[in-house]
Simulated assay, not measured.
Amino acid sequence: MASLEVVRSELADAHKDTRLNLSAVLESTTLTPEQRWGTAVACAFAARNERLKEAMLNEAKQALGDKATPVIEDARAAASLMAMNNVFYRFRHMIGKESYATKRAGLRMNRLAQVLTNKVDFELVCLAVSAINGCEMCIQSHEKVVLEGGLSEEHVHDAVRIASVIHAAAVGLES
């Protein structure tokens, strides 16, 4: 069972900043524990590193106790949905043709209506995953919903900080 400390210790000296940042970003006082760990777990799924994913799942379970299951399931759903949507909408944005923009996406997203935690937190997690996946349209869309839902730019900032460091840790573990 990998822990965050084990993963941090596996990062070579070339990744010292990532090692230090990995602990610091997870101590956010802006985000609730559910927001923090939902973001961390979803971003670990998006970063596709097995050790990092296992460590984040274990840490989330320890930190959240009985509340862990819905947070983890929403994180899993957010990572999967954004894997699909970020590719599709990034393509639309990058190609820049009106003919594609007017076509129906035709992608099932029923899970959005079945969020287990709350809609705004789910959108925040989707925003963080979209930052990893580099979809400008999705980032802008999720940020708007998050701010309209009552969260602040500080919430967005901290979630994206978590995403950036988790992604860096995955790269560090693979290099």
Rank of each mutant, 00 (worst) to 15 (best):
L4T: 08
V6P: 00
V7I: 14
R8G: 01
A12V: 03
A12P: 06
A12T: 15
A14Q: 07
T18P: 00
T18Q: 02
T18I: 10
N21H: 10
N21V: 00
S23C: 00
S23F: 09
A24Q: 13
V25N: 01
V25D: 01
V25C: 06
E27D: 15
E27A: 12
T29E: 15
T29Q: 08
T29H: 08
T30H: 03
L31T: 06
T32Y: 01
P33T: 07
E34P: 04
Q35L: 13
Q35M: 13
R36E: 00
R36C: 13
W37T: 00
G38E: 06
G38M: 05
G38L: 03
V41R: 01
A44R: 03
F45R: 07
A46V: 02
E50Q: 14
A55E: 03
A55T: 05
L57F: 09
L57Q: 09
N58Q: 15
A60H: 02
K61H: 05
A63D: 03
A63Y: 10
A63K: 13
L64I: 08
G65L: 11
D66H: 07
A68W: 00
T69Q: 15
P70F: 05
V71W: 05
I72C: 06
E73R: 12
E73K: 14
A75N: 07
R76F: 10
R76H: 10
R76A: 05
A77D: 15
A78T: 07
A78V: 12
A79R: 04
A79I: 08
A79Q: 10
L81C: 01
L81N: 13
A83V: 00
A83T: 10
M84T: 12
M84G: 06
N85K: 11
V87F: 08
Y89V: 08
Y89I: 04
R90N: 13
F91I: 11
R92H: 15
I95S: 13
I95P: 00
G96W: 11
G96A: 12
K97Q: 14
K97W: 14
E98V: 11
Y100D: 13
Y100E: 12
K103W: 01
K103I: 13
A105Q: 09
L107G: 02
R111L: 13
Q114L: 11
Q114A: 12
L116M: 13
V120W: 05
F122C: 07
E123N: 11
L124C: 08
V125T: 15
C126Q: 15
G134E: 08
M137S: 13
C138D: 01
C138V: 02
C138K: 01
I139K: 08
S141V: 07
E143Q: 14
E148L: 15
G149L: 12
G149I: 12
G150A: 08
S152N: 10
E154D: 15
H155I: 08
H155M: 07
D158W: 06
V160S: 03
V160N: 04
V160C: 12
I162K: 00
S164F: 05
V165P: 02
V165E: 09
H167D: 10
H167L: 05
A169M: 06
A170T: 03
G172Q: 00
L173G: 09
E174A: 15
S175Y: 06
S175A: 13
